[in-house]
Amino acid sequence: MSLVNFTNKEITCKIVYYGPGRSGKTTNLLYVHSQVPTDRKGKMVSLATTTERTLFFDFLPIELGTISGFSTRFQLYTVPGQIYYNATRKLVLNGADGIVFVADSQARQLDENLESMRNLQENLLAEGVDIRTLPMVIQYNKQDLPSDLILSKEELDETLNFREVPSFKANAIAGEGVFESLKGVSELVLRRLGEEAPG
């Protein structure tokens, strides 16, 4: 849950990039890391396996700037996508203020996307969080691949976006859609913060 310091006027929000293995969650963070100036970001912590897949989580803190007089920071996390790392996913999900669900646009990955979405819902429920109340955006990554390999945004929305949350096309390696997704989730998180009592 967001931490708000009313004395020093600071807000810290935790945003988790969720999705199936190899969908491009870490790539999103790497792109953000490459764009943000040094004085506005912390060290990117990456606990990766030898095969460059996230073992525990990736973590990137960024200083967003001042919003309504509150100095605002985001802590960006990724979870490991592989099915067998569910325990770790649960840990990282704990206390999340917003989710960027990074889906793999490839048609053959549709089941993995669905499974991951179902897993997210289940893990949130285990924490007592209803997915319908948690700020979330969906990013359809790898839209740069040949069109015969991928599904369109509309097709993916049809299958995955049953809540009709904001969704974005992306090519995270080139940075396309990364900014938009982060912006989308930030808006939702901050709007919710203004509506609800922080813990």
């Binding site: 700037g65 001042t66 919003i67 309504s68 509150f70 912006k183 913060l193 922080p198």
Partner: peptide, 19 residues
């Protein structure tokens, strides 16, 4: 409650764009 300005999105967008 955190009271955010009505047009907080503008500040957010400016900050993100600058970032």
């Amino acid at each position: 409650r955190v009271i955010l300005a009505e047009d907080f999105e503008r500040e957010l967008n400016d900050n993100l764009a600058a970032l």
